[in-house]
Design a protein around this nucleic acid. Structure first.
Lengths: 227, 227
DNA sequence: CCTTTTATGCGTACCTAATACGCAAAACCT
DNA sequence: AGGTTTTGCGTATTAGGTACGCATAAAAGG
């Protein structure tokens, strides 16, 4: 048998509690003391199961991802598109994952499962193993970047909505000197930034779809050039 | 004349000093006390010129970008490719910019100048204004994501080189169950992760080029479908 | 069943860092 | 010179991470 006092909690419990706090009040609210209190334990009790707060954050980062959904029928393109949107949806539910500093290559079970899922979509393609990894990495990069961008923006919106209506367009007009930045000035003049709600959910989704479309288009061309 | 005691420092000085610290010892070393000491001032003196540490970080984020280099001759594709690499190069010099939380849409002069530069590359294309913005946003997203990924990885490498040689491949083999993650297992078996130095500079560059190529390919297809 | 061993729970204490507050010094105005 | 305004900054408060060591619980050995 195993010696010593029996643990009353384990790392998974702590991770769960921490995620609950992050979901409810944001990652900033996650302090060791707060998490411990949430579970009815003392602060220092957590350190028996988690080396440091950083380690807890890493655990949270993996546990935050749901299990990847099964891919729909269709070709690799449909599947990767679906996959990318699923990633985005999951991240959207837990925006705070984007604020977690990554300390190494992914080893958590959830992250690996997602990785596997995306690679599976490319199974039937003539890409080499390394290329498949490159494509998936590129996609992850894109999705994370997009999610991060909109997340920080919508967060900024919550902090200070005034700065995010057509206010932004107006400020740009003040700052941008058409002689120094002609291309940007032209876009501003076209009214692209003068929408009432710059971070309208539909606009954001459309923007994402557009970028995703471009990327997959590129992959398709690459595959075409190979076959 | 302006009344009151003459300021001996201004926000730009503080930003410069903070950047010097970040360049030398990383963003984590940037504390108000440390920056103040670096300039020979008292900690609280800084708060006369900078509302908070967050504001200082925002200022740093803009000032960290060099002026965008003039675009080379060529079509939009050459130019955007060049631009993306220039962004990457600049960010690489100051990896800490990626750790700065963004609190709103870009308004700093340097960021806007880069934005303008990229839009200029698309000047001759038949894209609509909104689409141009979409393309550039997508590119930024991709470059930042890629930079962030490699930055965190190489940082992790510095922290613990042992975990980054073919050790990673070995660990993956332990963890990954081929029955649960067949696609990933196949890739692992192909030896993709068994390189000695997973984050070899050339490999990383190639990976970036590959993703960039895919994205631009997608843009080209989109433009083609329009003309 | 009592002692020894080992792992856990956690109280205390220390350290780092951000920043509110208020006073004193400097530079301008009349 | 006296008043006014703005800067420089010393002091103090607050929040949060974590090292350390002791008490306790549970299994193993006698």
């Amino acid at each position: 048998m195993k010696r010593g006092r029996k643990p009353t909690i384990d790392a998974a419990d702590i991770t769960r509690a921490a995620i609950a706090v992050a979901d409810a009040e944001g990652l900033a609210a996650v302090s060791m003391a707060r998490v411990a209190q949430e579970m009815g334990n003392a602060t220092m009790a957590l350190y028996r199961h988690v080396k440091s707060k950083d380690e807890l954050l890493t655990l949270m980062g993996d546990a935050a991802m749901d299990d990847p959904p099964p891919l729909p029928d269709g070709d690799w393109r449909d599947q990767l598109g679906f996959w990318a949107k699923a990633v985005l949806k999951t991240i959207r539910k837990r925006q705070w994952v984007l604020q977690i500093p990554i300390s190494g290559p992914p080893l958590g079970p959830r992250n690996l499962a997602w990785f596997d899922s995306a690679l599976g979509a490319l199974d039937g393609t003539p890409l080499e193993a390394g290329e498949k990894v490159g494509v998936v990495m590129g996609l992850i990069t894109f999705v994370h970047g997009e999610a991060r961008l909109t997340a920080t923006l919508t967060q900024g919106y919550g902090d200070n909505p005034a700065a995010f209506s057509d206010e932004y367009g107006r400020k740009l007009r003040e700052i941008v000197d058409p002689r120094k930045m002609p291309a940007l000035a032209k876009i501003i003049a076209a009214g692209v930034f003068d929408v009432d709600d710059l971070y309208d959910a539909e606009d954001v989704a459309a923007e994402f779809d557009f970028g995703l479309h471009l990327f997959l288009e590129g992959v398709a061309t690459h595959i075409g050039g190979r076959a």
